[in-house]
Design a protein around this nucleic acid. Structure first.
Length: 749
DNA sequence: TGCATTTACACGGGATGCGG
DNA sequence: CCGCATCCCGTGTAAATGCA
């Protein structure tokens, strides 16, 4: 797992190399001198602040380097003293650890066995079963997860010991339990042992277990320590929420990979009454497209694959179901498993497994299974062993026509033979609920078409309509229609269209529909009419969405009204932030009462003065200005002149969190933040407090508060920004700064 | 233990660069 | 200018962690 991007190192400005003109010595202007003096003063403050830190780091590094040097020297001397032919022993962990490991939980080996340590001869690899050394005492320790030893996987006792992890300050011993193990005949089994703390705070975020003797030797013979592979120790609470491998049918659906407990996907699924892994798998086999749409575009293809793959590892029960379609001509029944997967057909007293069915038959069988779920009271249950087990065996040895089980009686006729009974299982209403609910709720004219529909195929088409409308439900959290919904049309065999050409597609369909009207009647006409209605509706929705997007794009530049002679502009979103940078500098020079204001973003390319770039702090010559790492964005802050408070910063997108305090740090003069930022906790805290930057805010005395909130992303729902201006307050003498956004305008008081 | 916060990851889409 | 590949940014989400 890669580390999250850290604030970039300060970029050397693009002009750093300097043109020949710049390289020339210039006669310093007064302004330049003042600026330089201020910078010098600030540098002194900065140096004073960071000096202890630098001393500490340098000391640690020197000590570390020295220790490594000593270790290598020791290793070298040991090699020289101990010829390769001398005896040496090795401790080894015989089995791997059972992962994941949680705090407070017993550390076990794979297969829930105890962790076994063996003592072997380093040359022969044989376990030392006799002699004093075969019953030595071994200590279990915790090692840094990145401890590797040298290229030959060797290390000295000192190196090993230097990589032992001690408990955090104020916490109890990292390992608790039987940390000492007595070997017997060269073998020892670790007893109760558990971690008291997780591994996230270490440099590698992982631990290793190690086993060592007291001093690395036994009667003068080197005993090389053992170490395990690295592993992460998680907080025990994680155990409550851990995924199940494999999941069981009755597990809640969030036990599946990529579905977080109470997370977005969990809620979406719950809204559709998909609560268990069984529900998930059932809908997956009945209508994977619908399931995919329920999860929405927020679940990427990769996540979807991971979730489905995990779900499919679920061990199913052997219960099977048989459904006889009442309208079926040949009285054949479809056999499906507990999650609705077609297993085969029962036809003319023979069982035809799915692998022997034609594609067309398989597809028909799946349609019948969907019907079965809608008529659950007519579904029969039987046991797989009865239906598949013994008969499958006889089938496999049968010489007659492949795929048919001779002598197989229709369960309807001879139900007892297969222990068939009306299923007592509750009907999984994944299918019916979605439909009925939407039926109740939907007022779309399309429903007229749907209600007109008759017959299985039309019912199936109707379900498409349900699904489509379903996407607009509040539960789905998706406004209008997501692009995923087109999958319905693809799945149902109806030609799919590029959304960009949807207009043409609809026209074409309508034309086709019209033609159909003249040549066909009944079902097909209704089907086409319904289809064209759906497409027309979808097209309309698309148009609305497109127009809204267009409008939003315009709003983006209309959100800010600039008053008086100020030209400062704020926004969220990279484009407008760029203009903040560009025009912000202008405002700094034109607003004497507000000499330095806000952090700006990293859009050096767009900025004429080049005072904004990644990971850099900026001066405008009079005071504090800005600092930004990855676009003012992922991490940045501005400290006040005493380096005691962050006066401005941004979390992720400028916009996630950004605020500017007045000079006393008593009031916020500008701020923006987003949904996962809590104002109170963010406004003085940098996301990555790594960069110590002296900067100062120098505001006019009388500015009390000049702030606003781009509340939008706090209250963002369905992709719509709900605006909320919290407060704007500026002293009349201030020549104004901040504008309003959207349809509201800030009133300066 | 529940909620808040932080961290990591994945992905869509726009920007950008490059070759034809 | 176009098509394509690649990169980068903004964003949504899960999962881990901190804290009261």
């Amino acid at each position: 797992m890669s580390q999250k991007r850290q604030p970039d190192e300060p970029k050397v400005g693009r002009d750093a190399a300097g043109s020949p003109e710049e390289k020339r010595q210039k006669v310093p202007a007064l302004k330049g001198v003042i600026t330089e003096v201020m910078r010098t003063q600030n540098i002194h403050k900065f140096v004073a602040a960071v000096e202890p830190l630098i001393r500490k780091v340098v000391k640690e590094e020197v000590e570390s380097a020295f220790a490594n040097y000593l270790s290598s020297m020791t290793r070298q001397s040991v090699k020289e003293i101990s010829p390769s032919t001398s005896r040496s022993l090795q401790l080894q962990f015989k089995n791997k650890l059972s992962l994941p490991i949680f705090t407070g939980a017993r550390i076990e080996g794979e297969d829930s066995s105890g962790i076994t340590i063996i003592l072997v001869d380093a040359v022969t690899g044989q376990v030392i079963t006799s002699g004093q050394e075969s019953s030595m005492k071994v200590e279990i320790v915790v090692l840094e997860g990145d401890f590797e030893g040298d290229e030959e996987d060797n290390w000295t006792f000192e190196e090993f010991s230097n990589n032992i992890v001690k408990e955090r300050e104020g916490k109890r011993s990292l390992l608790t339990g039987d940390v000492f193990v007595d070997l017997k005949q060269g073998i020892g089994v670790v007893g109760e042992l558990s971690f008291t703390d997780n591994s996230s705070w270490t440099r590698s975020r992982k631990f290793k277990l190690g086993a060592r003797t007291a001093d690395g030797y036994f009667n003068g013979v080197r005993v090389r320590e053992a170490k395990t592979e690295s592993f992460m120790v998680k907080d025990h609470r994680g155990e409550l929420y851990k995924k199940h491998h494999p999941p069981s049918l009755v597990d809640e659906v969030w036990r599946l990979e990529k579905i977080g407990k109470d997370g977005a996907f969990h809620k979406r699924l719950a809204c559709e009454n998909i609560n268990t892994v069984k529900d998930f798998l059932t809908l997956l086999s009945l209508d994977a497209t619908r399931l995919r749409n329920i999860l929405g575009s927020g679940m990427s293809a990769k996540m979807w694959e991971a979730t489905v793959e995990h779900a499919r590892t679920c061990v199913l029960t052997e219960q099977l179901h048989i459904y006889y379609h009442p309208d079926g001509e040949n009285k054949s029944g479809v056999v499906f498993n507990v999650v609705g997967e077609v297993m085969g057909l029962v036809c003319d007293q023979r069982f035809l497994p799915i692998r022997d069915l034609e594609d067309k038959e398989k597809e028909e069988a799946r349609v019948v299974v969907k019907l079965a779920y809608q008529h659950w009271s007519s579904v029969l249950a039987c046991d797989a062993r009865d239906l598949l087990g013994k008969h499958l065996h006889s089938f496999q040895s049968a010489t007659e026509s492949p795929g048919a089980i001779s002598g197989f009686s229709s369960p309807v006729v001879e139900a007892d033979c297969f222990d068939l009974s009306r299923s007592s299982m509750l009907s999984p209403d994944i299918f019916s609920i979605g439909a009925t609910r939407i039926f109740d709720a939907c007022t779309s004219p399309i429903m007229v078409s749907a209600e007109e529909s008759r017959g299985d195929m039309e019912r199936f088409h109707s379900s498409l309509v349900y699904d489509t409308i379903d996407n607009t439900s509040e539960c789905s959290g998706q406004p209008f229609l997501g692009d995923d919904s087109w999958g319905h049309f693809i799945d149902s065999g109806i030609p799919a269209f590029d959304t960009a050409d949807i207009g043409a597609a609809v026209t074409g369909f309508i034309a086709m529909s019209t033609r159909k009207t003249t040549t066909h009647s009944g079902k097909s006409y209704k089907g086409w009419r319904m289809l064209s209605s759906v497409l027309r509706w979808v097209f309309n929705i698309k148009k609305v969405v497109a127009s809204k997007r267009k409008l939003r794009g315009k709003e983006k530049f209309g959100w800010f009204s600039f008053t008086v002679n100020a030209v400062t502009r704020l926004s969220f979103g990279s484009d407008t932030v760029a203009s903040v940078a560009a025009e912000g500098s202008l405002s700094l020079s034109t607003l004497p009462s507000l000499e330095a204001t806000m952090a700006a973003s990293s859009f050096e390319a767009m900025h004429p003065l080049n005072w904004v770039s990644e990971g850099t702090s900026y001066h405008n010559g009079t005071g504090a200005v800005a600092v930004a790492s990855r676009p003012l964005c992922d991490a940045s802050y501005v400290l006040n002149k005493d380096n005691t408070n962050a006066v401005a910063f941004a979390g992720r997108p400028l916009c996630d969190a950004f605020c500017v305090l007045n000079k006393d740090d008593t009031n916020i003069i500008a701020s923006t933040f987003s949904n996962h930022s809590s104002f109170k906790s963010y406004y003085k805290v940098a996301r990555y407090p790594l960069r110590l930057l002296h900067l100062e805010i120098n505001l006019a005395e009388n500015v009390n508060q000049l702030g606003f909130e781009l509340g939008p992303r706090i209250h963002r729902t369905n992709g719509v920004y709900n605006t909320r201006i919290i407060d704007v307050d500026a002293h009349p003498s201030t020549t104004s700064v901040i504008g309003a956004f959207v349809d509201k305008r800030i009133t300066l008081r």
